[in-house]
Computed example of a mutant assay.
Amino acid sequence: MELLVRVQSWNGSRPVGCGSALAPEYWPLCDVWGIAVQAVSGAGFVSCVVLMLVLLLRMACVSRRRSGTPALLLFLLATAGIFALPYSFIISLSPRTCPVRVFAFGVLFGVAFASLLARGLALLGVALARGWREVGVAVGLALVQVIVATEWLLVVLVQDKRTCQFSQSEFAMLQIYVMVLLAAALMTALRFLRHTCVTYSYSYTGRTRRQNKLQAALLVLTLLLSSCLWLVWITLLTYGNHAMGRSPLWDEPVICVALTANGWVLLLGHGFTQVCFTCKRNARPKDPPLDFTGWTSPREQPAAPPDLKTGTDNDGFQADADGRRGNREIRQICL
């Protein structure tokens, strides 16, 4: 009965299209905003699955595998989870949806932002995040949020024996480490953007330099939009909705819209573009082998004849010498 009163006060009444046999906690699924969120988030989830399949097929077909592909797969997996998470917020709060909200929200965003931070470190050339160690850095950073969320669930929900009774401020404070990851990833992306725009290296070609600039700009744009979305939904959840008198009514829709919008920002800004970059790098033909036709070893070359000039090569000198020898013989005969 308390759940029915909560749903009716939150959503007004049973929406049109919901059957009488449907439980009250599922009524928001039939509402207009619930249907819109489900459609948009479902499209994002399917897009993430398609991109992951493309990467897996690339890894199976291309012999030259990229070390950053596992980290990209981890990022797409977290983004797909973000698109699936709004369903737990559309359905009314219950002992079954509460652990999913509390645990999965911070962990999924922690994995996504940790992957972006690890990617930024790898682009900067940090030895800790090079090659296959990039995915290890992302997993290690995300494990901190897993420990924080697990401890919060055990302490608040089990020890205090409260059935999912927490304020919106407590939910926002649970995401402090995720916000730290977001800020660190943004600072790393800005540093990489400055590095690509200011410095110049002769080891990079023009195409690689342009691609690095585009990759840095997209990474910064993705993290900036994510920061704005987080600032908006935290402000509305902790202060704005209460100030406008919409606190119980708009809390779940705000989080659902923020989840869906942030998921599309992550997918379009980093996931889709990184898959395109990976496919282009794998499809780029290798440099043709050097052609040594016509080249001969120095030992096989015939030695050049010495160009030595002798006196006999001078015709004038030879004629003069012959004339003097003939005059000397004539004098001897006469004498």
Rank of each mutant, 00 (worst) to 15 (best):
R101W: 04
R101N: 06
L117F: 11
L181A: 11
V198W: 12
V137H: 03
V54Y: 00
F192D: 15
Q301M: 09
M187P: 00
V102Q: 01
H270A: 05
L124G: 14
A261G: 07
V275F: 01
P248C: 02
L219M: 12
K161H: 10
M244H: 07
Q318Y: 02
Q332M: 06
L93T: 04
V32T: 13
R207H: 06
P289H: 03
T150C: 08
R133G: 00
R325N: 09
R325F: 02
A185G: 13
T312E: 15
G294I: 10
E252K: 09
W295V: 09
K161Y: 01
G245L: 12
S297I: 02
A172C: 05
L231V: 09
L266K: 06
L29R: 10
N11S: 07
L123E: 10
V111D: 08
V37F: 06
G316E: 14
P298A: 10
L57K: 14
V146K: 00
G326D: 15
N282M: 10
T310K: 06
S92P: 00
K213R: 15
T273Q: 07
G12H: 14
F277Q: 06
L186W: 15
F277Y: 13
D291R: 10
G245H: 14
R14M: 06
L181M: 14
V135I: 09
G34M: 06
T310S: 11
V158I: 14
L174A: 10
H270V: 02
T260S: 08
G42Y: 04
F109N: 13
T260F: 04
S47Y: 11
Q8I: 12
A184W: 05
L56G: 03
A303E: 15
G269K: 13
C197R: 15
P288W: 07
T235D: 13
K309P: 00
V257G: 05
C276M: 04
W264I: 02
S47E: 15
L51I: 06
R246V: 01
W33R: 01
A142C: 09
E2G: 00
S203P: 00
A129S: 15
L267F: 07
S63W: 09
T273Y: 02
C164S: 08
C61M: 08
Q38V: 01
Q8Y: 01
C334R: 14
F45V: 03
S47L: 14
K309E: 10
G34R: 12
L224T: 12
L308N: 04
A216M: 03
G17W: 09
L22Y: 05
N314K: 03
W10D: 09
A261R: 05
L259W: 12
A43L: 15
V265C: 03
A149L: 12
F105L: 11
G136P: 00
C256S: 12
G323Q: 15
G106R: 10
Q168N: 13
L29H: 13
A321L: 13
L72M: 13
W233Q: 12
L51R: 04
F45A: 08
A84P: 04
N212Q: 12
S67L: 06
T222V: 04
F103C: 02
L4K: 12
W250T: 05
L181Q: 11
P24W: 00
R194F: 09
D307M: 08
